[in-house]
């Protein structure tokens, strides 16, 4: 609902004022802050810790990857070195060892030594319920909008992936949903992620839309796979703030001043470290009408 209000406000802002690009003299003296992207899943799939450095704001050169860092993951009484990819296009990517699994409730520490500085973060793997069932429905809201004034192009027809899972009733968990079409990740942009914490979930079976996608993304008969991850509520805050700061910052109606997206790394590094349990469910794409 807040999103709806925000959309309205952004719209209002554009009718009462003009927007134009402005080139400001920015003080870029502090570029080169280390950024660590580390979402490690409890599944034997290729994950990595990506290390970059901040660049100047108007710089268009892409990411400044950091090579030669020492990346160590500790937990459960053992420690693992994450080795930098040897592929020339993947410098700055430190690969999670094969067959590495995480334990529920266990806290893991990620230590990164890059360019002489040490950065650490910890993350606990949270409870994740199994997915009992999965259905793909036509998004029924779109039909209410459909009228002469508001035609839906065939490729814009949208579908919801609905899941049923058992909520344990204990607070402090958060879930992140991504989906795959024929085994390739379709929710690439974080704006396509669905995430929420369990504050409003009631103990017992929960049924709800976990993702939505359009006809442009998948054909009937394609394999749709949903990925459900357990994440810490702080990681949800991280994403929420990320979107607020990147979509709403400086807006006439923004209720909070511009500020950095939070991090769980020490020593001034940006980014976030999360160890996540993960479950999958797959369905062949053949949408149903919801009753």
């Amino acid at each position: 609902m807040k999103k709806l209000i925000n959309i309205f406000l952004i719209f209002t802002a554009t009718i009462i004022g003009c927007e134009a690009p402005i080139d400001l003299e920015l003080n870029n003296s502090e570029t080169g802050v280390v950024v660590i992207e580390a979402l490690l899943r409890n599944v034997n799939k290729r994950d990595f810790v990506k290390i970059t450095k901040t660049t100047s704001f108007y710089d268009n050169e892409g990411e400044d990857l950091v090579s030669g860092a020492n990346v160590v993951l500790e937990g459960n009484g053992t420690s693992y070195n994450l080795i930098e990819s040897s592929h020339p296009d993947s410098t700055g990517y430190y690969i999670k060892p094969n067959n590495l699994s995480f334990n529920n409730g266990e806290t893991y520490t990620l230590t990164v030594i890059a360019e002489g500085e040490t950065y650490t973060a910890t993350s606990t793997m949270n409870y994740l319920p199994g997915i009992d069932s999965m259905e793909i429905y036509y998004d029924d809201i779109q039909f209410i909008f459909a009228s002469e004034a508001f035609q839906i192009a065939p490729e814009d027809t949208s579908y919801n992936i609905e899941l049923t899972y058992q909520e344990d009733g204990e607070l402090g968990d958060g879930y992140l949903f991504k989906y795959y079409v024929n085994d390739s990740l379709a929710s690439v942009n974080p704006r396509d992620f669905v995430f929420f914490d369990d504050e409003f979930l009631i103990e017992g079976p929960v049924t709800g839309a976990a993702q939505s996608f359009t006809k442009a993304v998948a054909q009937y008969g394609d394999t749709i796979t949903i990925e459900m991850l357990s994440i810490h509520p702080d990681f949800i805050t991280f994403y929420e703030v990320l979107f607020n700061q990147t979509d709403l910052s400086g807006n006439l109606f923004a209720s909070s001043p511009p500020a950095n997206v939070p991090t769980n790394f020490s020593n001034g590094a940006r980014g976030f470290f999360q160890v996540a349990d993960v479950n999958y469910k797959t369905k062949i794409f053949k949408p149903l009408y919801k009753e």
């Binding site: 400001l24 920015l26 003080n27 870029n28 003296s29 502090e30 570029t31 802050v33 950024v35 992207e37 970059t52 450095k53 901040t54 660049t55 100047s56 704001f57 710089d59 990411e63 690439v188 942009n189 974080p190 704006r191 990320l242 700061q245 990147t246 910052s249 511009p258 950095n260 997206v261 940006r270 980014g271 976030f272």
Partner: peptide
């Protein structure tokens, strides 16, 4: 004002 930017999941974030 931002003093730089960085990326997370491919999204650029002001620093």
């Amino acid at each position: 004002l931002p003093i730089g930017k960085y990326f997370y999941n491919g999204t650029s974030i002001p620093l």
